[in-house]
């Protein structure tokens, strides 16, 4: 087993999709250690999704394009490992819950087993992993249902369970809750919280800044393919450039409007105490 303290390292990475006029990401250098939970945010076309695709290897293996620099995921260069080879240690959850179902299984538990089966895992091991993954994702009660009967939120948890059955060390999520209702969203974050406690490295693209600041100990802000800030949420969202180009959580905006002393709070709890203080 590879022992590495870094999960994802990008060194001077530039990437442009095939036939694209400009680069999707330019000169990105980023180090994410194992066990971290990092939120990635920015306006549209900031390169956030591309970052996930680079970490998974879909860029360049699936999309072609021109990759410069070095992407090292779990101590292996992404150019030398294919996406399907990566799938046993890295997972990527996409936005759309409906297109991640394999479409070849008639039961939720069989669907979760799809990944391990592709990897040739022995039967008893598959069953154990399926049970574990369904438990982590909170869908054990849905085991006998047909995937097409599930709601969007349930499908997204099913997709997540399918990835967790591979026991990934690095989990990438590209706006995982943007198509879900608040209940579905909360359920997903509960799962992620559990995974974080177990030591899984999580890199999550999220454009709702309040959520981002609440759950992620570290935030990376991207604009037009470059990283413009990287650190704790309270640092990042007090940088003017970030506030201008990316935005701020609503609490921070309120604090600015009320002319509270800097640094402005980014989380609900901090905002509540800051406002209470300002009223007192």
């Amino acid at each position: 087993m590879e022992v590495s303290s870094t999960a994802l390292v990008l060194e001077g990475v530039c990437y442009a999709y095939e036939e694209a006029p400009r680069e999707a990401v330019s000169d990105i250098s980023l180090t994410i250690g194992e066990g971290e939970w990092v939120g990635v945010t920015g306006p549209t076309n900031a390169g956030k999704s591309t970052l996930c695709l680079l970490a998974m290897g879909l860029a360049p293996h699936f999309f072609g394009g021109r990759l410069k620099g070095k992407v090292t995921v779990l101590a292996k260069d992404s150019r030398s490992v294919s996406v399907i080879e990566r799938s046993s240690e890295v997972g990527l959850l996409f936005q759309n819950p409906f297109t991640q179902v394999s479409g070849a299984r008639e039961r939720v538990d069989e669907e979760v087993a799809f990944g391990p089966e592709c990897h040739g895992v022995a039967r008893p091991e598959v069953d154990a992993r399926v049970e574990e993954a369904m438990g982590l994702a909170g869908i054990t009660h849905l085991a006998a249902r047909h995937p097409m009967e599930l709601s969007g939120g349930q499908l997204q948890r099913l997709a997540l369970a399918g990835l967790l059955a591979m026991r990934p060390r690095l989990l990438l999520l590209d706006e995982p809750t943007s198509q879900l209702d608040p209940a579905g969203t909360a359920a997903i974050f509960q799962v992620l919280d559990g995974l974080h406690r177990r030591g899984t490295t999580i890199v999550m693209v999220e454009h709702r800044l309040e959520t981002l600041c609440e759950v992620c100990p570290r935030v990376v802000a991207m604009v037009a393919g470059r990283v413009i800030a990287d650190g704790a949420p309270e640092e990042v969202f007090n940088i003017e450039k970030v506030q201008e180009r990316v935005g701020m959580p609503v609490f921070t905006r309120l604090a600015r409007a009320r002319a509270l002393p800097r640094p402005w709070p980014v989380r609900l709890r901090d905002a509540a105490s800051a406002f209470a203080k300002s009223i007192a």
């Binding site: 699936f62 399907i84 394999s102 799809f114 592709c118 990897h119 040739g120 990835l163």
Partner: peptide
């Protein structure tokens, strides 16, 4: 993409 992320097409002996 979602299939590849789960390892679809891996050349292993099927169980």
């Amino acid at each position: 993409m979602a299939l590849e992320v789960r390892g679809f097409g891996l050349a292993v002996k099927r169980v």
